[in-house]
Design a protein around this nucleic acid. Structure first.
Lengths: 138, 138
DNA sequence: AACCCATTTGCAATATCGTTGCAACTTTTA
DNA sequence: TAAAAGTTGCAACGATATTGCAAATGGGTT
């Protein structure tokens, strides 16, 4: 079966050309994407507003998640299966390459637990590592 | 002596009303501030542009640093003494309270080292913890 | 296949956010 | 206190994001 459509149906979203297109970029691309990446690269022409709304919907339905960044950019990446309807479990490390500027989700590496000062109650943690990625190390 | 002016002089910046005002907000406020917080709360009226430029200058001179966030907001907080001229050492954990929405720098807690996949070379790491802070825990 | 209803899209207008160039004004230094 | 350097405010601009509404599309039903 078509994975792309499956994901949309599982999220109880209508399967439209635009959504398929955008979701495909995440599935095939692998990495993190910004609004601009999507707007520029869709094969079908999709209105800016629709891109905004699609991304928003995808986040709400647990298809993609926001990636924390140290600058002011907004990045999204695919969620793993265990995210659903606004409840994200994206507590893995995000790696930003300072050479190719791509962001990778290091799914296999979970954010380490840390000891907070007395009285602080942690609920969720995120971690960003900047450096040189696999492909740029030469 | 006046701490505020000292900080500015140490950073080789002219001491102006606007800068004193903005820096004072950081020193007295303690927490993290966004551009909008500053623009709205200065006692003297300061132009939007000047606020932008002042924050930028403060970051360059190592007076404040950018805080990574999981949404799209840009937050700044005071650096500790050992930051200077664009070389920041702000690798401590940032805590965002989901109740009062304030961001605290947990200076005493450094970001733990983690094992990255083969080929990834880390250069800088940041960590954000969301939860309930000391003051909101009741 | 043709229909209806709910959902989704595109357009236009508007709001928010951040940057740049330049002239006027302050601060510093001598 | 005057000149030089640094800083500010204004105006204009560009990029980014949001909203309302009418038209179009998708999903389910007959």
């Amino acid at each position: 079966m078509n994975t792309i459509e499956d994901i949309l149906k599982k999220a109880k979203l209508n399967v439209t050309e635009g959504r398929k297109n955008i979701l495909e970029m995440f599935v095939l691309g692998g990495g993190a994407l910004a609004h601009a990446d999507i707007e520029k690269n869709t094969s079908v022409s999709i209105d800016r507003v629709t891109v905004y709304r699609t991304l928003q919907t995808f986040v709400e339905r647990g298809i993609i998640h926001l990636i924390p960044t140290t600058d002011n950019t907004i990045l999204y990446a695919l969620c793993k299966d265990n995210c659903s309807d606004g409840h994200h479990h994206d507590e893995h490390v995000h790696f930003i390459c300072i050479t190719c500027n791509k962001t990778n989700c290091l799914e296999e590496i979970t954010v380490p637990n840390i000891q907070l000062p007395k009285g602080f109650k942690p609920i969720q943690a995120a971690m960003i590592v900047k450096g040189i990625c696999l492909h740029c190390k030469n």
